[in-house]
Nucleic acid binder design. Structure first.
Lengths: 252, 252
DNA sequence: CGCAGTTTTGATTCATCTCAATTTGTGTGG
DNA sequence: CCACACAAATTGAGATGAATCAAAACTGCG
């Protein structure tokens, strides 16, 4: 079970490629953040291999029994909540290094759906085993708490967005957030591909898809960005930020 | 420091009343849920006494360094996030048995403000010590994770509310949520006092205070509730629920 | 008892939704 | 490789729900 600790080779499992945390270029953004090599090896040993998903495939669905959390190794996901009466709210978009599935801990069952928006790969982290190991590795325990806490803080940011911002402010905040996360992963801050539809953006931002489309067009007309379907270029990041915090304050 | 473990008397600290978890009638809703008497005693021994707050007093402010989480022993709180440009979003209302402060774990500093909406009392739970103890008590560790996970799920519910619901639906959801939480604490499901202003409700629900007031009036006119300033009576809970999930679906 | 803060209510404006038509893009199979 | 069908995105016109502005009524605190 511990044979692959510190190995530099990448063993193949029946689920897919197994990549050790120590070999993963997302480790600084993920659960193993600042772990010693030895502790990282212990974490590796419980990670149950990877799992590959095709675009459109569900990683889990609301109601599925909760066993594991997932770290996105590559690709792009959305999570959404459905209600009986047909409401659908996208609660987040997740990219490499981000953790999925923590909504399931409290009830032993997932409460939302997670869907791959492009061909993707995740690490499967059995939660009971993670709790056991984190009780032995204080820094791992603390990292887990930090990840969960940051998710709470992120959610507060979304509430702020949904509760107080107008359509163009929401979209600007959304684009700036994506830009910042792509930057943290070594991609261009200014140029990227959206993996989600206008409707999914709209659901996340509490807007209709037409409103999202119009806001994109307005930004383009004003020279803030260029939009070509899903391809986005941020042309004037300063003015895009100013959409959020207009000079002189929001009232003045 | 550990002298009061398992004592049945209630020692006084300089901060306020110290009540053991085992003596607290909120224990079944709080961190000690399903802990053995012995483990509950160990949890007691790290809880740094209580703290009393007058109405309007801050429990913590955004930017305060993070040391502890807090369990509401009595009273009522709101949490809110402020942005530089003057936006203010109430992110939640907390009552007895609920945990405050978990937003601070990820950054070592609180990211929101917590304010007492009436004279209140909290238990102070030093987080570093809680992590240490929870690494020794698996059920405590799991309870902590459950509490954080439920907070994430609650936040998703608020996103759903803000992203997909109309004003009256939001207010109905809000009242039903309060009703359910009061019920869980042994209070009347139908009759209660709001501790927050219309403006705070509005901020939480992403509405202006006038809109909240109008929705209250409409509900009253239709015989769903009776409103007398902050005093609420739910007269027809079934029809109030129907505001959220109209018979025949939202579209039909 | 009076004043400040809170709440209610009304009239009007405005942002976003809705409905509808068109264009563009994508993937599939001949 | 092209054509077709389907999905996604854009754009316009009009409807609507909530915001805004404004004034009055109520409450409770000092």
């Amino acid at each position: 079970m511990h044979a692959n600790v510190k190995l530099n080779v990448i063993p193949i499992t029946n689920q897919g490629l197994k990549v050790a945390c120590s070999e993963c270029n997302m480790r600084e953004l993920c659960l193993p953040f600042e772990l010693t090599d030895n502790d990282m090896g212990r974490l590796d040993s419980l990670i149950g291999g990877g799992r590959k998903l095709k675009r459109g495939q569900h990683l889990y669905r609301a109601g599925d029994s909760f066993e594991s959390i997932f770290a996105v190794k590559a690709g792009f996901f959305k999570t959404d909540v459905l209600t009986e009466d047909g409401r659908d709210q996208v609660t987040g978009f997740q990219m490499a290094g981000e953790i999925l599935g923590m909504d399931g801990i409290g009830t032993e069952a997932h409460t939302c759906n997670a869907v791959a928006l492009e061909d993707s790969e995740v690490c499967l982290i059995p939660f009971a085993e993670l709790e056991l190991l984190s009780s032995k590795i204080p820094s791992l325990q603390h990292n887990l708490h930090k990840v969960m806490s940051r998710e709470i803080v992120r959610d507060h940011g979304v509430m702020m967005l949904l509760g107080t911002m107008r359509a163009e402010e929401r979209l600007a905040a959304f684009l700036l957030n994506l830009s910042q996360r792509f930057t943290a992963r070594g991609y261009s801050p200014a140029e990227f591909h959206l993996r989600m539809t206008r409707e999914e953006i709209g659901s996340y931002l509490g807007l209709k898809l037409e409103t999202v489309s119009r806001a994109f067009s307005r930004f383009q007309d004003e020279g803030l960005i260029s939009v070509q379907q899903k391809h986005i270029c941020i042309l004037d990041i300063a003015r895009l930020k100013a959409v959020l915090a207009p000079p002189g304050g929001r009232i003045g």
